[in-house]
Nucleic acid binder design. Structure first.
Length: 987
RNA sequence: AGGACCAUAGCUCAGUUGGUUAGAGCGCCACGUUGACAUCGUGGAGGUCGGCGGUUCAAAUCCGCCUGGUCCUACCA
């Protein structure tokens, strides 16, 4: 073995051998255990979030596999509609200067498929680097043939049950991608905006007394007005107003109800009139209390319009430019005015209320022009400025603006025909499943988030005006009748349509989450009744981030319950986001992204800087990022290996919280790997080719052997329990502490005198070799789910010595998880080793305090103890001599004969190191004074406690007794320190 | 506006049902290349557990309020 651990030399080799060995496929005889990977974007690449999540899933999977469960980790990728289409559109534009429309639907989707084949292996290769033990033979894609079938089936069945419907609704529209998106894909961001106040003149120049009152009912303003004041942040939508609404209780406007007012935009001769109505929606205390109702461009207004029969006038096209189609403005305005008077004007699709000069303009340009025109006309509300001059009233205001999470474009509420899933009846059982515990969230508090969302669920818009995705299985005849079926043929048969009836398929595709919602059962072969489905569904646990509980988890639960009658998974382990060391979100634009593969393989500084700033448009920003990067990683990033990265993730995986990725810990765990590596080297150097007592015959185990075996059992219990509770941080810590602080720091050191001293017996050596090897072998099994590579590599060498190797091609992967054996917990051995450690630490302390070189041989005396201390001294003499570097160690019967010595207590026994005048008297006195002071404080605290009658009376006896014992110990120690001080002072 | 979560050593974090002299890793200081490991060893310094109240014999832990931070949800035209 190399002297230092070199991860890159073992990782790829082992992954390949595991895969070729068929170790990833389900094989256990025990109960099934299944995890579905949240399918990453097929064309994506592995980021820290994936790496974290994959580590957790792989750890669980390997662990259950070792426990003998019939374990499946289902792998696959998602077609990721918008994201992938966007990427390929950009690529085609860059390479050929063409838009997708230039190519046409078929040619474009061909390009996407090509790109999928070209780049689709990237993320799965990276998944392999993480050591993910997924079953590649079952790899799926959300647009493969089988999945296609499942998606069609679900759509058709939902439609037949009346749970999918089509309708013209106001939806979130992304003008960049020209598609509807769901509420969840909208990000509300605070931006600086304006609120304008305009006058809507009353029809026919009518006037009224406008009276404002304060809370006491005193009149604060009274004037005659011929208008109603309206505030808006989106003046361009005024063109589509269908009414002005006020609250029914608002006395100011009571005289106006039912009257008409004029929208102050558009050619003067065709100013449009709209009614003033009442509705509960306007808040009398906000703005003027009067709200313009633009049903086609605002969600709240839409609801008001629906309630009051106000027509919805669409003003924009798919790119959110002002409409050019339909009737002329003059015709449209005339029709709309008739509607305002209560006439039925029928279908309003053709009505285009955009004035000629604004048609075709971008919405923001149109806004500017509308404001300009109204202001010029003197119809803006005004306010006095500092000099007393009247100025148009424009408030600066921060407002929440909706943006597309992918496009970054401002989302437009837009009236279009879309497909919807009626969620009400799907949500009920989905809520119940969590309420009654069929599905359990870990940590539990995410259940509240789930309930809150599910109980206020809007119908789900599932159609997307994209080309990449599952095309909706609906066909239309010339009259617009819709036929939903699994295929065109089925549509004809089902509805008895003659062959000459022309049918065209719906152009839209389904929301990506519609197909990924079927992931747990679609991957297992549904709608066929496959054996896999029978065996592995419902799956055991879903490992996912809180950010997609709504997107994905909730929808999976609804769809899976509806179609299989089963929950998709029994538990949902929710993890947080991986952030950078300072707690910032990792993002390309911030330039703080870490690539898991770079952490594994290492990357030099220049390459890292290039990676972070490569495609950056703003040179200023690129410079800043480059500087920050050079500062943070002056040497670049050195290789750490997959195992160290995995262990870091696990150690930071506290439930449900974001993790700040800590490079320091990554370094630390790389060192930990090196520690394990070198400990193994030591074991192999001392055991290979020697009798390790694994031939089945009896061996003699020393106290140290029995102690480490005992501690191993306890560690196994701890790790197992932590894994069961998804506390990977505890599991990794227990393992770390056992390996480093006990096995390496103590047991390996204790084995040296046995293996190396001439007077050690062959029997004891045999027992120690056996323990060294067996414990290490168990450690490797215990650590394997977390650190698969290094453990496998070492295990291949250790297992033959331990007698657990089954021959050529054997792998640690399929060896049993070490279960603790209570019978091997050995209290007596533990007490002995604790005593031994106590004496050694005492002597080391004395060395440090007296500034004696660690290697200088010393003389030590033990005194004041009892018979068992004396026995232990004899039993442990060689260990004490070796580990504490002693040239002499004696028992002193009469403490009074003790020479001047540095002293430490171990239980009641004193450990003495004669000082022989080589100490600094003043320094030692100062140290002792400080120490005595510290003891005094502690003693004072406990005495106070024990002096409190109610404490003694009310606290449990055990607690009181514990305090008394503590007091005794502290007092003994204090007496010792004082004796010591007096002796030294007397010198 | 409503809700959730968080606040413990310089940094990143543990701390089970209230009872520890409040822990770990990294960093820091001192000493040390002894035959697994300097990606190491030994020892050490460093915290009134965000603040204020309350419950209790006893609070980092339970309750209330406040401050600061993160995030969700809904948003007022």
């Amino acid at each position: 073995m190399d002297k230092t651990y070199q991860p890159e030399q073992i990782e790829n080799r082992w992954y390949q051998r595991w895969e070729e060995g068929g170790h990833f496929a389900p094989s256990g005889q025990g109960a099934p255990f299944a995890i579905m990977i949240p399918p990453p974007n097929v064309t994506g690449s592995l980021h820290m979030g994936h790496a974290f999540q994959d580590t957790i899933m792989d750890t669980l999977t390997r662990w259950q596999r070792m426990r003998g469960r019939n374990t499946l980790w289902q792998v696959g990728t998602d077609h990721a509609g918008i994201a992938t289409q966007m990427l390929v559109e950009r690529k085609v534009a860059a390479e050929e200067g063409k838009s997708r429309h230039d190519l046409g639907r078929e040619a474009f989707t061909d390009r996407v498929w090509e790109w999928k084949h070209e780049s689709g292996g990237h993320i799965t290769r990276q998944l392999r680097r993480m050591g993910a033990s997924v079953d590649w033979s079952r790899e799926r894609f959300t647009m493969d043939d089988g999945f296609y079938k499942a998606v069609q089936e679900v759509f058709v069945q939902l439609f037949d049950k009346g749970l999918i419907y089509r309708g013209k609704r106001l939806v979130n529209w992304d003008p960049k991608f020209e598609t509807a998106i769901s509420d969840l894909e909208v990000e509300n961001i605070e931006v600086n905006g304006h609120m304008w106040h305009f006058k809507y003149p009353l029809a026919g120049g009518e006037t009224y007394e406008y009276i404002e009152k304060d809370a006491e009912g005193n009149v604060t303003r009274r004037e005659t007005r011929d208008y109603i004041s309206i505030a808006t942040t989106r003046p361009e939508t005024m063109l589509g107003d269908g009414a002005v609404a006020v609250h029914p209780s608002d006395e100011r406007y009571a005289p106006l109800i039912g009257k008409l007012c004029e929208i102050p935009v558009g050619p003067k001769e065709h100013r449009r009139l709209i009614p003033i109505i009442t509705d509960e929606y306007p808040d009398p205390d906000f703005g003027s209390g009067a709200v313009k109702i633009t049903g086609a461009h605002d969600f709240n207004d839409y609801a008001v319009a629906q309630r009051n029969g106000i027509p919805l006038y669409n003003l924009m096209d798919r790119k959110a430019h002002m409409r050019r189609d339909g009737l002329s403005y003059e015709e449209s305005a005339t029709l709309a005015s008739r509607a305002a008077r209560g006439e039925d004007i029928g279908d309003v699709d053709e009505v285009n209320l955009v004035p000629t000069e604004l048609r075709g303009l971008d919405r923001f340009e149109a806004r500017r022009r509308v404001v300009e025109a109204i202001t010029a006309e003197g119809l803006a509300m005004t306010t006095a400025d500092a000099e007393g001059n009247e100025q148009p009233l424009v408030e600066s205001k921060t407002l929440m603006q909706p943006f597309g999470d992918r496009s970054g474009d401002v989302i437009e509420p837009y009236l279009t025909d879309q497909w919807f899933v009626a969620v009400e009846n799907l949500a009920k059982p989905a809520i119940a499943a969590v309420e009654n515990g069929d599905i359990e969230f870990v940590p539990k508090n995410y259940e509240n988030m789930y309930f809150a969302w599910m109980r206020d669920l809007q119908d789900w818009c599932i159609s997307r005006q994209l080309w990449w995705g599952h095309r909706i299985p609906a066909w239309y005849d010339a009259d617009g009748n819709v036929y939903v079926a699994r295929s065109e043929t089925e549509a004809r048969n089902k509805h008895g349509l003659a062959d000459d009836v022309g049918l065209t398929q719906d152009e839209d595709v389904l929301d990506t989450w519609f197909s990924s919602g079927l992931w747990t059962f679609g991957t297992l072969g549904w709608p066929e009744k496959t054996e896999a489905l029978e065996t592995f569904h419902p799956t055991n646990v879903l490992v996912t981030g809180f950010d997609i509980i709504f997107f994905w988890v909730a929808r999976m639960i609804m769809l899976t319950l509806e179609f299989t009658g089963e929950v998709p998974f029994k538990q949902v382990y929710v993890h947080g986001l991986v952030r950078d060391g300072q707690g910032n979100k990792m993002s390309k634009s911030k330039g703080n992204v870490l690539d898991p593969i770079d952490l594994i393989d290492g990357i030099d500084l220049e390459a890292l800087v290039e990676k972070r700033t490569g495609n950056m448009m703003q040179p200023q920003k690129a410079k800043a990022i480059a500087k920050a990067t050079r500062q943070e990683f002056p040497e670049g990033i050195e290789p750490h290996g997959t195992d160290a990265l995995r262990f870091t993730f696990l150690s930071q995986a506290t439930t449900g919280r974001d993790i700040k990725f800590d490079m320091g810990r990554l370094d630390g765990y790389r060192n930990f790997c090196n520690k394990l590596w070198n400990a193994s080297r030591y074991v192999l150097m001392n055991a290979e080719g020697q009798d390790c007592g694994t031939d089945g015959s009896e061996v003699e185990l020393s106290l140290a052997d029995r102690w480490i075996v005992s501690r191993l059992q306890q560690t196994e219990t701890q790790v197992t329990r932590a894994m069961e509770e998804y506390r990977f941080d505890h599991a990794s810590q227990a393992l770390y502490e056992f390996i480093w602080n006990e096995y390496c720091d103590w047991y390996l050191e204790l084995s040296k005198p046995v293996l190396w001293d001439d007077d050690a017996t062959p029997e004891s050596q045999r027992g120690t070799r056996r323990t060294l090897v067996r414990v290490l072998e168990a450690i490797l099994r215990l650590a394997h789910p977390m650190m698969p590579y290094i453990t496998e590599e070492i295990w291949q060498r250790v297992a033959p010595l331990a007698g657990t190797y089954r021959g050529e091609g054997d792998s640690l992967m399929v060896h049993p998880w070490p279960e603790a054996d209570e019978a091997r917990v050995d209290e007596a051995a533990t007490r002995n080793i604790e005593w031994l450690k106590g004496v050694i630490v005492a002597i080391r302390n004395i060395r440090a305090e007296l500034n004696i070189a660690p290697g200088k041989p010393l003389e030590a005396l033990l005194t004041k103890g009892d018979a068992s201390d004396r026995e232990r001294l004899e039993a442990n003499r060689p260990f004490l001599a070796k580990l504490a570097k002693l040239e002499r160690l004696d028992w002193l019967d009469d403490p009074a004969e003790a020479p001047l010595a540095a002293t430490q207590l171990v239980g009641d026994m004193e450990v003495l190191v004669p000082m022989a005048g080589l100490i600094d008297k003043d320094a030692e006195l100062a140290r002792l004074a400080k120490e005595i002071d510290k003891q005094d404080k502690l003693i004072g605290g406990i005495e106070k406690k024990l002096g409190n009658e109610s404490f003694v009376a009310k606290a449990p006896d055990a607690v009181v007794q514990k305090e008394r014992d503590k007091l005794d110990d502290l007092s003994a120690n204090r007496r010792l320190l004082i004796e010591q001080r007096d002796k030294i002072a007397a010198l």
